[in-house]
C-alpha cells in the first residue's frame, strides 16, 4: 500500500521534473529540476530494495549535475531566459520524434515479446553491495573493464585538450598591441 503510494509520488514527480528540464527556458530551472529528477529516480531503487544502487545514483548524479551547473554558470546568465535558435525546426522535430519512437520500441519490446523474468534472482544472506560486486566482476567483467578503459581514454583526451597551453598563463602573458583588424585576422586564422 505504502509502496504503491510512494511509487506514484515518485513517478509523477520524476515525469514533471524532467518535463520542466526539457521545456523550461530558464537554465536554473532546467538544471534544478534535472537534479531533482535524478534524486526522485533514486527513490525507485530504494522502493525496489536496491539500496546500494539508489545511493550510487544519488552520489553519481549529484556530482554529474554539479559539473553541469559549473558549465551553466560559465555559459549562461542564469537569471535570464535562454533564447533558443532553431536552424531547421523540421529536422529537430523529426530527430526528436524518431528518438522517442526508438526508445518506446526498445523498452516495450521485451514486454510485448514475453513476460519479464528476473535474470538474477535475489539470494538471501548476500547484501546489496556484495551482489552488485559479484555480478560486476563475474558476468559483466568485460563490459566493466571496457567502460573503465573508455573513461581512461576520455580522461587522457581531456588532459591533452586542456593541457596544450597549460604552462602559459592566460592572465600574465603580455600580448603585443595589435590593431583591431589584424587581431580579427589572427582569430580567423586560428579558428581555421
Amino acid at each position: 500500500m505504502y509502496e504503491f503510494i510512494a511509487f506514484y509520488i515518485f513517478a509523477i514527480s520524476t515525469v514533471i521534473l524532467f518535463l520542466i528540464t526539457v521545456l523550461s527556458k530558464n537554465v536554473l530551472y532546467a538544471m534544478t529540476s534535472l537534479a531533482g529528477g535524478m534524486v526522485m529516480i533514486s527513490g525507485f531503487f530504494f522502493l525496489l530494495g536496491a539500496d546500494f544502487l539508489g545511493v550510487v545514483q544519488l552520489i553519481v548524479y549529484v556530482g554529474a549535475v554539479m559539473a553541469l551547473y559549473a558549465f551553466a554558470m560559465m555559459f549562461f546568465d542564469t537569471t535570464k531566459d535562454v533564447k533558443e535558435k532553431y536552424n531547421s525546426p523540421r529536422l529537430v522535430f523529426l530527430l526528436g520524434g524518431l528518438m522517442a519512437v526508438v526508445f518506446v520500441v526498445i523498452f516495450s519490446a521485451p514486454i510485448i515479446g514475453e513476460n519479464l523474468q528476473v535474470a538474477s534472482p535475489i539470494t538471501n544472506g548476500v547484501g546489496n553491495a556484495e551482489a552488485v560486486g559479484i555480478v560486476l566482476f563475474t558476468k559483466y567483467l568485460v563490459p566493466f573493464e571496457v567502460a573503465a578503459i573508455m573513461l581512461l581514454v576520455a580522461m587522457v583526451a581531456g588532459i591533452i585538450l586542456a593541457g596544450k597551453k597549460m604552462d602559459e598563463s592566460l592572465t600574465t602573458t603580455v600580448l603585443p598591441l595589435v590593431d583591431k583588424e589584424s587581431e580579427d585576422e589572427i582569430l580567423k586564422k586560428e579558428s581555421r
Binding site: D51, F52, V55, V62, G63, G127
Partner: peptide, 14 residues
C-alpha cells in the same frame, strides 16, 4: 539503511 555511509555522504553532497 544497510548502505548507511554512502547514504549519508550522498545526502551531504546533495
Amino acid at each position: 539503511v544497510n548502505v548507511g555511509i554512502l547514504f549519508v555522504l550522498g545526502m551531504m553532497a546533495a
